[in-house]
Write a protein that binds this DNA or RNA. Sequence first.
DNA 1: TTTGGTTTGTACTCAAAGTACAACATAGAC
DNA 2: GTCTATGTTGTACTTTGAGTACAAACCAAA
Lengths: 192, 192
Amino acid sequence: MRQLPATIASKLYGAAELIAERGITEAKMDDIAAASGIPRATLYYYFTGKDEILAFLLTDMLEAIAGEVAAAVGTPGTARERLEAAVHAQIAVMLDQPAACRALVGDLGRATRLPELAHALQEAFQRPIEQLLDEGAADGSLQVQPHPEDASLAIFGAITVAGLYHAVEDTRPSAEQIAKRVLAVLMQGLAG
Amino acid sequence: MRQLPATIASKLYGAAELIAERGITEAKMDDIAAASGIPRATLYYYFTGKDEILAFLLTDMLEAIAGEVAAAVGTPGTARERLEAAVHAQIAVMLDQPAACRALVGDLGRATRLPELAHALQEAFQRPIEQLLDEGAADGSLQVQPHPEDASLAIFGAITVAGLYHAVEDTRPSAEQIAKRVLAVLMQGLAG
DNA sequence: TTTGGTTTGTACTCAAAGTACAACATAGAC
DNA sequence: GTCTATGTTGTACTTTGAGTACAAACCAAA
């Protein structure tokens, strides 16, 4: 995939809705060209094929999430406050591009190989969160986690599924609402 | 899709690994036939196409999860104990068919329309869990949840992502291990 | 042994992904 | 200005594989 001009990148989001609606298989290259306003030949000039278009959307979103999460983690405050900020950040990014989210859940396997995704996720999300859990254990704002990898995975899952669900359904509460509710469960726990 | 003989259904799982590895697009109908030992023409006799094969794997797994979860929920004990049992049950089902899980995350959109999945999930998982949360609030074993829908979504997400992650990676702890760790976070919460 | 569903092989059609390539546009370099 | 690189796009072509058609064989039960 060639270095992508910003104009093209932004136009592509115009096709995300289409891909989300039909799935990448039913969204023909001609349709994507029409929906994005980028001629078919140009698409093939920049991308090796359909899958790479999806891959672009995915990495774009992962980078956005990674960036926002990193920013939130780098903020001053207790580990707990920063964790809350990170959760808000991820949900905000997802709800910012609901169509891309829907397109991606539907066709994840065509955007990336799953083990690579797992790896990218670790870098973008798990690692910073694990660090936060560590720091929280130190500053007392969070509990000590015997298995921080699994804890961060559970956190990521809770956020992501909640975000995706609200991106798929259109009954969309604000990002703040969702984050608040997910955090309520994650922070307080379920036990009575 | 015609009523499927058990012999065919079971053979299909033999193709799940292939589909997981290559993705449904790269797994050609001929390959699926070869991998499952079901002749191509027979596949087309029972299924309208590739997607329906995937749909079969999905509904099969959802039914298994729904069944096990329902059983766990129907058990005697406090709501909390039953919730823990339900979590164990879901993870056990997922790790029982890791290949099908991987195949499905990769190509969810070809197995079902996403809104329908959201709906099926509500029936199979969210509803029983919400009920459990209610009962837990009543018997004191679980906290009162102001937004049980979102709470059950977060629970589902935490479990599912943890399960999928371990199904994709091959560093597979036992279902019990995973369930225990996810539950530790969910029950105790993160706050210090 | 006949009838109706199941199972399977073979041959065919057709949509669309991807490729090839030429024409045109644009912008620095000289 | 004109030359040259690279970017942009239209058009025509190739190829792959999904799905279909259909007939032959196979059962199982009436």
